[in-house]
Write a protein that binds this DNA or RNA. Structure first.
Length: 762
DNA sequence: GCCGTGTTATTTTTT
DNA sequence: ATAACACGGC
C-alpha cells in the first residue's frame, strides 16, 4: 500500500485482526508508570495536562510555538503505551499530508513500527479511503475519480452550457465558489435551491444541480464531495457509521481553527460513540476562511460538548521575546478575539529589522544579500532562512536574485506540478484508463496531441453518445462496429477509430501492468514526446516534467494495477506540493504565508509589507477579511525563531506597469523599541509613502570597492573559483552591483554578480 | 482541421 | 506581463 501517503488506513484494515489479537505488551517489560514518567518528562504543566486528559472531549488552545505537535504526539504515545490503547483505534486528522507523515515518523521513533497502524491523514484523504470502501452504498463506484480545481472549473463551464447561461453574465469562478461554499456547509443542491432568494442564487442553484449531475455521470467527486458524500453516507447508513465509530475510539483533530462545517460535522459524528474527541487549534491562526473554514467551530465545539475540558498552551518555545512582542502587537488589534498570551521561554535575541526597498528587485536583492551575510557572519545555513510572501507571484524576484547570487533555494508550490499541462494530460489518459466515464478527462485529451479530431467531430460524438444514453468513450468504441454512426467521415472517422483503439489498449494494460509501464505506454502511443519536442519553446523542460512524473509512478510498483494506479491517482489528487518539500537540500525556502503555517525557521524574511499586498487589496473592503490578513501577518511573524525581517518595496510591477504603494498598516503596530533599520540606514517613521532611495551605488560591496564604472571590460580574461578560466562578455550595472557575463572555457556562458562571484582578472 | 494572430481578462491564499 | 480565448486564413 502507499506508505508515503503517510496514511495507511487500507493496510491497517487488512492487518487489524491479526494485530489486535497480539495485544499490547511492553518490549522491555518496564512498568507503565515509568513509561508515563518518560512521556511526561520535559513537558510543562499545561502540556502534561493535555497529554494526560484521555477521556471525554478536550479543547487545546495552542499558541504558535507552544509545543503543540509534541503534545499531540506524546498524547498518542501515552494512549498507546500507558493506557494500552491499540493505535489502530486512534484517528488523528491533520491539516496536510505532510503533517500526518511527520507525526507518524515521530511516533514510530517513540513507539516502534506498530504505530503505523494509526490512522493519520487529512479529512480529505480519510474520506477518500472511506468512500472507496463504502461509497457503493450511496451509488459511488469504487473507481471514482477526484476532480481538482481545473477539472471542476471546466465542468462548471459545461453546466453553464447545459443550463444555457452566458458565462459572461455570471463569472464561473464566483459560481464555483458558491457551490464549494454550499458543500462545505453540508448543503445539497436541493437544499440550496430551496433557500435561494435572489435571482443570482436561484441561478447558482440550477447550475449546482446540473454540475452535480455531470459529476455523477463521470463517476467523479470534487474535493468538497469527499466530505459531503462521506457525511451523507454516514447519515443514510447508520450501520456504516457505527462501524467507523467503533473503530475510532479516540479522535484527534489538529488545526481545528481551519476546519469547515462539514469537517466538524464529520468529526462530531465519528466521535459520537465514545465521546473521546480532542481538538487542537488557535483562533489567531485561522487563515483559511476563503476556503470556507469556519473558526466558529471552536465555539460550536464548546456548545456541543459542554463538558469539554479546555487546556491553553501559552508558553512559547520557538521565538525570542522581540519576535513575540512584535507579533502580539500586531494581533491584539483584532476585535473580539479571545485574549491569549505568548510567554517567551527564550531570552535575549535581536530586535526585528524593518527596511524598505525601492522596488521588488531591490527588495529581493537586499534579502538575498542578507541571507548570504547571515551565512557568512553568523553561521546560519541557507535552510535556516525563509522568505515568506503573500502571493506566489512574488517568488519570481527572489528566484531571480537567488540565481544571480548563486544562492540555492527551495521554491514551494508556485506552479503546481500536477497542474502543469503536460503532466495533467498524461494523468487524464491514466484516469480514462481506470474510469472511461470520466468526461472531463476525455474532453481534455481527445485531440491532444493533435490527431485530427476537431471540435465539430467532438460535438457530433458527444451528441450521439447522449442520444444512445452512453458515455462518450463507449460511443467512441461503438463507431467501429456501427457503420451508420453519424460521427465524422473520412480522415476524422479513422482518427476516431485509432483513438478508440488507443484507449482500449490503455485500459487493458492499466488492468495488469505496473503504473510506470502504463505511463510509458500512454506517452508512447500518443506520441507525446515528439509532440513536446516539436514545440518551439519549453519542450525540453516539459519533457523533464514528465520524467519526474515517471519517477513518482515508479514508486507505485506495488501493488500491481489497478490498485496501484488508483493509489497513484489519489495521491496526486490529494497531496500538495508542500508535502514534497525536499528537506535534504540546503537552500533558502521561498514560500507563501499560507503554506508556511506550522513551519519554523531561524531567520524569517516577511516581504511585501505594503497596503494592497499584505493586507491584500481584495480583503481591504471587508473588516473580517482584513482581520484574517492580520492573522496571516501574525502567522508569518511567529515562524521566526531568532531573527525576523520585515521588508517592503515602494514600487512594484503589477500587470505590466509599475505602481507605488504605502507601507502596510501592520508595520505601524510594531512599537519602535522592538526594531531597528539595517546597518547604516536611517530609522524612518514607516508612514512615509516613499522611502529615501538609497544611494544607487554602494561604495563597497563585500569588501571590493566599486566605482561608478565597470571593474571588468569585455574581452578581459578572468578566473573563477569554480568555473575556471573565461572571457568577459559584458559587465552591466545592476541595482547597486554589476552583472558580469562570462564565457567560460569549460563551463559555458554564466551570468554572475560582481560582488559575490569569486572572480579575478588575469 | 490546424495554426497563427489579435483580443481579452486576469491575480490571493489550496485540500 | 501573461495566458487563455476568439477569429480568420490556409
Amino acid at each position: 500500500m502507499a506508505r508515503f501517503l503517510g496514511y495507511t488506513l487500507e493496510s491497517s484494515i487488512t492487518t487489524a485482526k491479526e494485530y489486535m489479537s497480539t495485544g499490547i505488551h511492553e518490549p522491555n517489560g518496564s512498568p507503565s508508570s515509568s513509561i508515563a514518567h518518560q512521556l511526561l518528562s520535559g513537558l510543562n504543566a499545561a502540556q502534561m495536562e493535555a497529554v494526560q486528559q484521555m477521556d471525554g472531549p478536550l479543547l487545546i488552545v495552542a499558541g504558535p510555538g507552544s509545543g503543540k505537535t509534541r503534545v499531540i504526539v506524546h498524547r498518542i504515545a501515552y494512549l498507546v503505551r500507558v493506557m494500552g490503547v491499540n493505535p489502530y483505534r486512534i484517528c488523528a486528522v491533520t491539516f496536510t499530508n505532510k503533517a500526518a507523515k511527520e507525526m507518524k515518523e515521530r511516533l514510530v521513533r517513540l513507539l516502534g513500527t506498530r504505530s503505523e497502524h494509526l490512522a493519520a491523514g487529512t479529512f480529505h484523504a480519510l474520506c477518500a479511503q472511506i468512500l472507496r470502501r463504502e461509497g457503493q452504498a450511496i451509488g459511488l463506484s469504487s473507481d471514482f475519480v477526484i476532480y481538482d480545481t481545473d477539472d471542476q472549473q471546466s465542468l462548471i463551464k459545461q453546466a453553464f452550457e447545459a443550463e444555457e447561461v452566458d458565462p459572461k453574465r455570471m463569472p464561473t469562478g464566483g459560481v464555483h465558489n458558491a457551490i464549494s461554499g454550499a458543500k462545505s456547509q453540508l448543503i445539497t443542491p436541493e437544499g440550496y435551491a430551496s433557500r435561494a432568494v435572489s435571482q443570482y442564487e436561484q441561478m447558482v442553484g440550477r447550475i449546482y444541480k446540473r454540475y452535480q449531475q455531470l459529476l455523477e455521470r463521470s463517476q467523479a467527486v470534487d474535493f468538497d464531495d469527499l466530505l459531503l458524500k462521506t457525511y451523507i453516507l454516514f447519515r443514510e447508513h447508520p450501520e456504516v457509521l457505527e462501524k467507523w465509530q467503533n473503530r475510532f475510539q479516540y479522535l484527534m483533530v489538529d488545526e481545528f481553527q481551519d476546519t469547515n462545517v462539514a469537517q466538524y460535522g464529520l468529526a462530531r459524528m465519528l466521535a459520537a460513540q465514545h465521546n473521546n474527541i480532542c481538538v487542537v487549534g488557535d483562533p489567531d491562526q485561522a487563515i483559511y476562511s476563503w476556503r470556507h473554514a469556519d473558526v466558529r467551530n471552536i465555539l460550536s465545539f464548546q456548545r456541543d460538548f459542554p463538558a469539554a475540558k479546555v487546556v491553553r498552551l501559552e508558553m512559547n518555545y520557538r521565538s525570542t521575546p522581540y519576535v513575540l512582542k512584535a507579533a502580539q502587537a500586531v494581533i491584539v488589534a483584532n476585535q473580539g478575539r479571545i485574549e491569549k498570551d505568548l510567554i517567551p521561554s527564550k531570552s535575549g535575541g535581536e530586535p526585528l529589522v524593518i527596511t524598505e526597498a525601492y522596488n521588488e528587485e531591490e527588495e529581493a536583492q537586499w534579502v538575498v544579500r542578507e541571507v548570504d551575510r547571515l551565512k557568512r557572519d553568523d553561521g546560519y545555513k541557507f535552510s535556516d532562512c525563509a522568505v515568506l510572501y503573500r502571493v506566489n507571484a512574488q517568488s519570481r524576484a527572489f528566484e531571480e536574485a537567488c540565481l544571480r547570487y548563486g544562492i540555492p533555494y527551495r521554491l514551494v508550490g508556485a506552479t503546481r506540478f500536477y497542474q502543469r499541462k503536460e503532466v495533467k494530460d498524461i494523468l487524464c489518459y491514466l484516469r480514462l484508463a481506470t474510469n472511461p466515464q470520466d468526461e472531463v478527462s476525455l474532453a481534455r485529451v481527445i485531440n491532444v496531441p493533435p490527431r485530427g479530431i476537431g471540435q465539430k467531430t467532438v460535438d457530433d460524438l458527444i451528441r450521439w453518445a447522449r442520444s444512445l444514453g452512453t458515455s462518450t468513450v463507449e460511443a467512441l468504441q461503438r463507431i467501429e462496429t456501427d457503420q451508420a454512426a453519424p460521427v465524422g467521415k473520412g480522415a476524422a472517422r479513422s482518427a476516431l477509430m485509432k483513438f478508440a483503439q488507443l484507449l482500449k489498449d490503455l485500459t487493458e494494460s492499466a488492468a495488469k501492468l505496473p503504473v510506470l509501464e502504463v505511463v510509458d505506454l500512454a506517452m508512447q502511443r500518443t506520441g507525446y514526446k515528439e509532440f513536446l519536442l516539436r514545440q518551439e519553446t519549453g519542450g525540453e523542460e516539459r519533457w523533464d516534467n514528465l520524467q519526474e512524473l515517471r519517477g513518482i509512478a515508479s514508486e507505485f510498483a506495488e501493488p500491481p494495477s489497478p490498485e496501484g494506479l488508483t493509489a497513484f491517482l489519489e495521491r496526486i489528487a490529494l497531496v500538495s506540493d508542500t508535502d514534497n518539500l525536499d528537506e535534504a537540500k540546503d537552500g533558502v525556502t521561498l514560500i507563501t504565508l499560507h503554506q508556511a503555517k506550522g513551519l519554523e525557521f531561524r531567520a524569517v524574511f516577511l516581504v511585501g509589507l505594503e497596503e494592497g499586498l499584505l493586507p491584500h487589496i481584495r480583503s481591504m473592503d471587508d473588516p473580517h477579511q482584513l482581520e484574517e490578513e492580520r492573522r496571516l501577518c501574525y502567522v508569518g511573524m511567529t515562524r521566526a525563531q531568532e531573527r525576523l525581517y520585515l521588508v517592503r518595496a515602494f514600487s512594484r510591477h503589477i500587470m505590466g506597469g509599475s505602481s507605488a504603494s504605502l507601507p502596510s498598516r501592520f508595520l505601524r503596530d510594531i512599537p519602535p523599541n522592538l526594531w531597528t533599520p539595517p546597518e547604516g540606514m536611517q530609522k524612518t517613521t514607516l508612514t512615509e509613502p516613499r522611502p529615501s532611495r538609497r544611494a544607487a551605488v554602494v561604495e563597497t560591496i563585500a569588501g571590493k570597492e566599486i566605482a561608478n564604472k565597470p571593474m571588468l571590460n569585455p574581452g578581459d580574461h578572468v578566473k573563477h573559483g569554480k568555473f575556471g578560466m573565461g572571457v568577459v562578455v559584458s559587465c552591466l550595472p545592476s541595482g547597486s552591483d554589476f552583472e558580469v557575463t562570462v564565457a567560460f572555457k569549460e563551463n559555458g556562458v554564466k551570468k554572475l554578480l560582481y560582488s559575490l562571484a569569486p572572480l579575478a582578472r588575469v
